[in-house]
Design a protein around this nucleic acid. Structure first.
Length: 484
RNA sequence: GCUCCCAUCGACUAGUGGUUAGGUCGCCACCCUUUCACGGUGGUAGCACGGGUUCGAAUCCCGUUGGGAGUACCA
């Protein structure tokens, strides 16, 4: 039985890269009928951000990705918050101490800084120097005991052999070999009693019976440390799969500098969760080259780690926008209208009827990229015209136009309410155009101008139907040409 | 600097020795048309470079170059 985990640290809003990692874990587990767990890695007291954990839960709920075990749902391997497991890590650190694969160190931050400066000056790679720093080996057992008993702050470091090499294996990248002399004696237990990622992660993955570790490529360089740790404990290793990074436009790891990187921002901007998930899924994984749009169910059915790419992928907003538009057009209208009411309210259009919102969304959904575009794209559907496209007005509002518009308003008024349909309105306009010997466009543009104030919009007759007979006629009668 | 990873159109990718190197986004043109979109059609553009291996390399090997990640008592 396959068990995977998504293990974010609550240090900020959930990142789109994290969303993808979580998604891949979820797809992988569901594909194989396994279990996907959520573990909160909150071992850094200094970076803890209030509300971050809540944001993780909320964003995954928004995207529909569910975890089988986690702090929010419980499970047989809890607690799922590392800050609640500190005793476990301490016991395991002691196990390593007993086996001689870890040791006490007493160096202060300043001493370590000086060590790195010396190494840098000497042109050597920065790495903890076991032979010259203050630790169990240089101080001796007795002094070590005395320091600990006297309350001197201490840490526990991983003992990495100076010779030999460590081999790693990765499902997407294959085998790699790391010279042991380049691997640092990583701190496992910090002086504040909390574990570092490396210890907590290995211990929890083992205790939680994780079979596959699927995580970002930024962890690849520390994989040998993890391999050494598993061996030090004498534990069987899970399989590893390091995912290609999500990149910004400059090909560097996607970060805040590159714009919106948190899932919450895309929610706020009116993107549909289905579109975001679909988009992010295809960054680094491709089930088949002839399709772009997939439901989560389809992705689950097709997901394979073997099809995950090695190279990083740029997060391209243009394609996300296109994809969101695709989803917008195929989404059930009721669902969209429900989402759009709060957006309208925020834009100052309160008291909009659900049925009316549905009609407007249906009218313009082909022309917008996100739901947030609605209040600005079609403000005239929710209140009086706010602005007039002057160039458009100049082009289509000529001498005599006023009278033609008035005539059409009169004819529209003669339609009974049941006749307020696209075909009837169109009939009136085209009929009148024929009488005048004009192309219909000569009349439609003035109509559009008087009713919407701008050039770009949905079909004119459809717009008038949604807007209603009374409002349409009123606008035609009250419009007296572009203000000068 | 050191360690590791990576390399197909501008972007996301298909391709696992023999293809006119395919698809999608973007861009351009045309069609549809009351505008803008949608939709349809066509087009633009790519195997980083150099050596091998092979009858034959985008595909395999080596090197170069380029890019990235890591190098914390952060994850």
């Amino acid at each position: 039985m396959v068990r995977v985990r998504f293990a974010p640290s609550p240090t900020g809003m959930l990142h789109v890269g994290s969303l993808r990692s979580g998604l891949y874990n979820y797809l992988f587990a569901r594909h194989l009928g396994g279990t996907c767990i959520l573990r909160i890695e909150d071992t850094d007291q200094t970076r803890y951000v209030e509300g971050a954990e809540q944001n993780i839960f909320e964003m995954f709920r928004w995207t529909g990705i569910e975890f089988d075990e986690g702090p929010h749902v419980g499970g047989p391997h809890g607690p799922y918050r590392q800050s609640e497991r500190t005793d476990i890590y301490r016991v395991h650190a002691q196990m390593l101490l007993d086996r001689g694969t870890a040791y006490y160190a007493f160096d202060t931050a300043e001493e370590l800084d000086r060590m790195r400066e010396r190494q840098k000056a000497a042109g050597v790679a920065p790495k903890y120097d076991r032979t010259s720093m203050r630790n169990q080996f240089t101080l001796g057992e007795e002094e070590t005991r005395r320091l600990i008993d006297s309350g001197t702050p201490w840490t526990i470091r991983l003992f990495v052999p100076l010779t030999g090499e460590t081999r790693t294996s990765d499902l997407v990248r294959g085998e790699s070999v790391f010279p042991n002399k380049t691997i640092d004696d990583q701190i496992l237990l910090k002086s504040d009693g909390y574990p570092t990622y490396h210890l907590a992660n290995i211990v929890d993955d083992h205790l939680m019976e994780i079979t596959h570790v699927i995580r970002g490529e930024e962890w690849l360089p520390s994989l040998p440390k993890h391999v050494i740790l598993y061996d030090a404990f004498g534990w069987e290793k899970p399989q590893f799969a390091h995912l290609p990074l999500l990149l910004g436009p400059t090909r560097k790891k996607l970060s805040k500098r590159d714009g919106d990187v948190s899932v919450a921002e895309y929610l706020q901007k009116g993107y549909l969760p289905e579109a975001l998930v679909n988009f992010v899924a295809l960054l680094g994984w491709n089930p088949t080259a002839d399709r772009e749009i997939f439901t989560v169910e389809e992705m689950i059915a097709m997901f394979e780690l073997e099809k995950v790419n090695k190279a990083g992928a740029i997060f391209d907003l243009e394609k996300l926008n296109w994809m969101n538009g695709m989803y917008l057009r195929q989404m059930p209208i009721e669902r969209l209208a429900g989402d759009v009411l709060p957006i309208l309210a925020r834009a100052g259009f309160g008291n909009v009827e659900m049925i009316y919102a549905e009609a407007v969304v249906d009218l313009i959904k082909e022309r917008i990229t996100t739901l947030n575009d609605i209040p600005t794209f079609a403000d005239y559907m929710f209140g009086p015209i706010r602005c007039i496209d002057f160039a458009y007005a100049q082009k289509h509002w000529k001498a005599g136009t006023q009278e033609q518009v008035a005539e059409m308003a009169g004819r529209f008024a003669r339609l009974n309410p049941a006749e307020w349909t696209v075909s009837m309105i169109e009939g009136v306009v085209r009929g009148y155009a024929e009488e005048l010997g004009l192309s219909a466009g000569k009349l439609i543009h003035p109509l559009r101008l008087a009713i919407t104030g701008r050039q770009v919009g949905a079909g004119m007759f459809e717009t008038m139907v949604v807007l209603g007979q009374g409002t349409s006629i009123t606008r035609l009668r009250e419009f007296t040409g572009p203000a000068v």
